[in-house]
């Protein structure tokens, strides 16, 4: 009985969403070549949210569900924003106490090397 209903939509919607995900992921990857800053952060978050909403709305069919289900599933995760806020305050506080008690970090990071091509470049 219930199977007669279900989520049946034209294939075109999926192809468009699929293509959009590829393009947006390309954009996401491109942000890695930008300098760190407010613009980069903004773009990372924008592309992330666009991809996430596309997946939930079209691929997971949430856009076609009734509002009761949408609210029951998408409402609770909003509470995570409070956790993010609290934990960032906590993190800042711990960093402050560490700096106060142990001083600045003395860690000397090693340079990242991959593969074997580097040594010849780095000849003294």
């Amino acid at each position: 009985m219930a199977s007669a209903e279900g989520q049946q939509h034209p294939l075109k919607i999926y192809y468009i969403m699929w293509g959009a995900l590829f393009i947006l992921s390309g954009f996401s990857y491109a942000t890695d070549f930008m300098d760190h800053g407010a613009l980069r952060t903004f773009l990372i978050l924008t592309f992330m949210m666009l991809k996430a909403s596309g997946i939930v709305w079209i691929f997971m069919h949430m856009g076609w569900e009734r509002l009761a289900l949408k609210l029951a599933i998408l409402g609770p995760p909003v509470a995570i924003l409070v956790l993010i806020w609290l934990m960032s305050l906590e993190g800042l506080y711990i960093e402050e106490t560490r700096l106060e008690n142990y001083g600045e970090s003395t860690f000397v990071p090693q340079e990242v090397h991959h593969g074997a091509a580097k040594p010849e470049e780095g000849a003294h």
Binding site: P76, P77, I80, L83, I84, M87, S88, E90, G91, L92, I94, E95, R98, L99, Y102, E104, S105, F107, P109, V112
Partner: peptide, 23 residues
Amino acid sequence: TFIFSCFLVAYMSVRIATTDPWP
């Protein structure tokens, strides 16, 4: 969702809290 959020928030928290440079 909550499990993965906890991991990602914990990651955010330790990344803020550390005084060593982040790779």
